[in-house]
Write a protein that binds this DNA or RNA. Structure first.
Length: 107
DNA sequence: CCACTGACGAGTG
DNA sequence: GCACTCGCCAGTG
């Protein structure tokens, strides 16, 4: 049964799909680029709804502080995200922070 | 319909 | 830098 997939999700996914390898975007940034300003939360919701193995590079989306947003009790998902990013050349500081000045995607 | 939660963010003290 | 508040909005009970 179709669960009435919100159209906004498609806009969000289409935007995330544009983030190039080795770069990251923030939730708020994705929201704006998708034409949904101030709906960063919805972006997080959309990411949450994605299957782990998706064609959408969800791992390139981080929060405004350049950190990987913690999920309630799924630390392994966070590690997966970090691994994927590091494999693309994104460096983390000792405090697990990404230097947005350097890695944030600028369309 | 109401209350609460959540991969968020900006503002304030 | 930390703790809180408020704005946003879909999902859930």
């Amino acid at each position: 049964m179709i669960m009435a997939v919100p159209n906004s999700y498609q806009l969000i996914y289409a935007t995330v799909l544009q983030i190039p390898r080795g770069r990251v975007a923030t939730y708020g940034q994705v929201a704006v680029l998708a034409g949904l300003p101030r709906q960063a939360r919805l972006v997080g919701y959309a990411m949450h709804a994605l299957p782990e193995r998706s064609s959408v590079p969800w791992h390139r989306v981080v929060n405004a502080q350049g950190r990987i947003s913690p999920r309630g009790s799924a630390d392994d998902a966070c590690r997966t995200q970090r691994q994927r990013l590091e494999r693309e050349g994104v460096r983390f500081t000792a405090r697990s922070v990404i230097d947005l000045q350097r890695y944030q995607w600028q369309p």
